[in-house]
């Protein structure tokens, strides 16, 4: 991926590792990766037309280029904001976020499910995202990269429902105990 970031990372990580009880903290702007790839917005439909995917192509999010060795992840959290912009129909929408160190992210359970509540045409429902990432997922963040996926599902009470789920912020914060090497 970014092997040549190693120089700067090793210097910085060495100092980080040399900081006694200090931690190494990564603030990763996941939204910027999705936004650049035009994957920050996912259309939703109910019912889902044939051939229209309800997921985004899997996206790669870079972490520390060297990885974080066998460091221990103290804490990891996800915060952000998603807007459900309804264009047609009434119903509810759920946005699910997937994460894994393997590209097949949709084969595991969703990390996060955000529900819009009831949406009606013309609504733009902003829903905050806040999640303390479970222990089983934390070790993922010692890798050099993780894969992200998103799925949107809609349930119609007055079909057809059509709209967009648009992320406006998604920030990942990971705190590691200083053991880069």
């Amino acid at each position: 991926m970014n092997r040549t970031w190693i120089t700067v990372t090793l210097i910085a990580a060495s100092l980080g590792a040399g900081c006694g009880q200090g931690r190494v903290i990564f603030n990763v702007d996941v939204y910027s990766f999705l936004k650049t790839a035009n994957r920050d917005t996912v259309p939703y439909y109910a019912p889902l037309p044939p051939g229209v995917p309800d997921t985004i192509p899997v996206q790669t999010v870079n972490l520390l280029p060297t990885g974080a060795g066998s460091s221990i992840v103290d804490s990891a959290s996800l915060t952000g904001l998603i807007a459900f912009v309804d264009a047609q129909g009434t119903g509810s929408v759920t946005y699910q976020l997937y994460i894994d160190t393997a590209r097949a992210v949709y084969t595991r359970a969703a990390l996060l499910t955000v529900s819009s509540g009831s949406v009606s045409p013309g609504d733009s429902v902003n829903t905050p995202i806040s999640l303390n990432i479970p222990a089983a997922i934390k070790p993922f963040f010692t890798s050099t990269k993780v894969y992200i996926g998103a799925r949107v599902a809609s349930t119609a009470t007055s079909p057809p429902v059509q709209g967009r789920a648009r992320l406006t912020a998604l920030q990942l914060s990971v705190a590691l105990q200083d053991k880069i090497f």
Partner: peptide, 26 residues
């Protein structure tokens, strides 16, 4: 030896390294 946190800011178009007090070691 400094005992502060070291923070990396990572984005699609961002890399920022804040070494805190450890900056004095550079």
């Amino acid at each position: 030896t400094p005992t502060n946190d070291v923070t990396f800011g990572i984005g699609k178009d961002l890399l920022q390294v804040d070494l805190g007090k450890a900056q004095t070691l550079i």
